Simulated scan of single mutants.
Amino acid sequence: MNKLIFEFIEANKLDILEEWIKTTKETADDRVVRVVSDQVFTSTSREFIDLIIANIKGLKEDYNTRLTDFAEKVVRLGWPLTFVTKGLHTFSTIVFHRMEESGIITKDNQLDIILEFDGWVTPITNEIVSIYSITWEKTVSLQKIALQELSAPLIPVFDKITVMPLVGTIDTERAKQIMENLLRGAVKHRSEVVLIDITGVPVVDTMVAHHIIQAADAVRLIGAKCMLCGIRPEIAQTIVSLGIDLNQFTTKNSLQKGIEAALELTNRKIVKVEGSK
């Protein structure tokens, strides 16, 4: 990089940082500024400027590590890629204008300095976009796995009795996850009775009912009984109007009733202890 640019940035780092933070805050999307405190915004901005200077100094190994760490940090903060790339453009613009005001950039050397700026900004922008994209894809992938695990958990509540509480819409991909978790969990916990609680499922249509019936059939094939809980009146009315046959397994209107029935199926019951309230 041009020695003039490098020396100017080094000598005016704090002033450039202050102007960069002020300009960025004024032009940034509200969601970028709103989600973090001023202290976090300032510290992250300082980290970004230090990162740019590390690139200018040619500290490649240190720069690559810090770039990856910075990308992971801004992804966690929820800052969009446009904010980061625009921030780099803002930085170069501030440096260029300040160099003009200082008389370092003249009509004679202006074209050469512009070419130097372009030769520096373009590669670092490409690197930031690449690392940010990779980090974002990795984060989304991990979040997707976590959501899949949480979307259909099989929970042991008593010996040989497990419950799968379902919340939200059930699509084909989620139905597959439900089936896999049911079978794996029923074998793992040695379940004799598996309760599928649909209290939190807003709509039960033909497709949802079909997936639930398939799951119940699969559970029976491994030697466990399946019970459907959380049949609200509106859900019952929908099932009847659609002509869906749920007679092949027991249904209950609440999870409590389902657990009581499951205990009876495993030769147990809940009793009230004398003297208890």
Rank of each mutant, 00 (worst) to 15 (best):
M227I: 08
A261W: 07
V84P: 03
L51D: 05
F83L: 11
N2V: 06
H89R: 07
N12G: 08
E264V: 13
I49L: 06
V33H: 04
P233W: 05
E72Q: 05
L59D: 14
G243Y: 02
G200H: 05
I134P: 00
L195Q: 08
M164Q: 12
V271R: 10
F6S: 14
V273M: 11
K257D: 15
K3S: 12
T172S: 15
N267R: 13
I170L: 14
E7Y: 05
V187E: 03
Q214F: 00
L221Q: 00
K3A: 13
G275I: 04
T172V: 12
L150I: 14
E100R: 12
K252R: 15
L242Q: 12
F8P: 00
I124W: 03
M207Q: 09
D15C: 11
I198T: 08
F158H: 14
D108V: 12
D171T: 08
N12I: 00
T93L: 07
L67D: 01
K144R: 13
I231R: 07
D205R: 03
K57V: 06
N2G: 06
D15H: 01
V163R: 02
K86V: 03
K144D: 09
Q39M: 00
A28P: 04
E116S: 15
E100I: 10
R174M: 10
I52H: 01
N267S: 14
K107D: 11
V140S: 12
I53E: 11
V32C: 00
Y63E: 14
L154A: 01
L51T: 06
A236F: 02
S45C: 13
A261D: 14
A209L: 10
G119R: 01
P202A: 01
I134C: 00
L182K: 09
I56G: 11
L221G: 02
T65E: 13
F91C: 07
D197S: 01
I128W: 04
Q110E: 13
K22H: 07
E234L: 11
D29T: 03
H89M: 05
L14D: 15
K86F: 08
E116Y: 05
A224M: 06
E127I: 02
K277C: 11
T199I: 10
V74M: 07
E72A: 13
I145K: 14
I113R: 08
L147Q: 14
T68M: 11
L4P: 04
L183F: 02
T42I: 13
H211S: 11
K57S: 10
V36D: 02
R184K: 12
E173R: 12
A175C: 07
E19I: 07
I104L: 14
G200A: 06
N267W: 00
L115C: 04
I114G: 05
K176L: 03
I114L: 14
V273W: 06
T90I: 08
I213G: 13
T162A: 15
L111H: 09
D205C: 08
L195W: 05
D171P: 04
E100Y: 02
